[in-house]
């Protein structure tokens, strides 16, 4: 919508009285314009960052200015998952399940140092060092916690990303459904089912010297 072509240049006839009311643009632009200004985030506060997220939604910073005030508690209705806080191993299966339940096109924002990479708690035995180890992240917002201004900046970045997407190339608009991410399992430690091969390699290595001796 940023670049309305002069109607007169086109081949079809627009009645003169309507020429000031009609704008011609590409389907990607109008579609993305709609999407970028009505991003519904999931109402999903994990930790401290969740509080700043609520403050961002409140009157002083007012997320509604960007069309994002409709926080949905259900993943089925959300476009954006703001992972606002420390991702723990115990919580991770829930987060992955929520991500799987969101309809395409979906976006993930890692808000705060913990969600980006573990943050101050990275060394902890129950902390996942970054949600991007399991879920694809679109925007990273650093800070501990990020100020509401930083979060808004991250959301504007996401809007820019949406602006750059196209029907023709978006994976979520292609044939076939996307594969859900396999749920991590709470074993003696967190088991990622995608890493089963590594377990077997390690177990084999463990056995080898015994076999040689």
């Amino acid at each position: 919508m940023t670049d309305p072509n002069p109607v007169q240049d086109l081949n079809y006839q627009v009645p003169p009285e309507m020429q000031s009311n009609v704008i011609v643009t590409s389907i990607d632009k109008i579609y993305n314009w709609g999407r970028r200004n009505a991003i519904w985030p999931m109402m999903f506060g994990l930790a401290c960052c969740g509080i700043e997220m609520i403050c961002t939604a409140a009157s002083r910073y007012d997320l509604a200015r960007f069309g994002m005030e409709v926080m949905r508690p259900s993943p089925r209705q959300s476009d954006l998952m703001i992972v606002s806080g420390t991702v723990t191993k115990k919580m991770l299966p829930v987060i992955v399940r929520l991500y799987n339940q969101m309809p395409e096109p979906k976006y993930v924002m890692a808000m705060g140092a913990c969600a980006c990479g573990g943050g101050p708690f990275k060394e902890g035995y129950n902390v996942v060092s970054g949600v991007d180890k399991f879920v694809p992240v679109d925007v990273y917002v650093p800070g501990c916690p990020p100020t509401p201004q930083a979060l808004l900046n991250g959301l504007i970045k996401l809007q820019e990303k949406i602006d750059g997407q196209s029907f023709l190339t978006s994976p979520w608009y292609q044939k076939g459904s996307s594969e859900p991410i396999p749920l991590p399992i709470l074993g003696p430690d967190l088991i990622d089912p995608r890493q089963n091969a590594i377990f077997h390699q390690l177990a084999q290595k463990q056995n080898e010297p015994v076999a040689n001796a």
Binding site: K89, P188, D189, I191, N196, H200, Q206
Partner: peptide, 22 residues
């Protein structure tokens, strides 16, 4: 970590047959 993230397991552990009690 050979797993590339914050986990460690007992030697020789394989996830098959693990029944989660969680």
């Amino acid at each position: 970590s050979p797993f590339g993230h914050n986990v460690s397991f007992a030697d020789g552990f394989t996830p098959e047959g693990w029944v989660s009690e969680a």
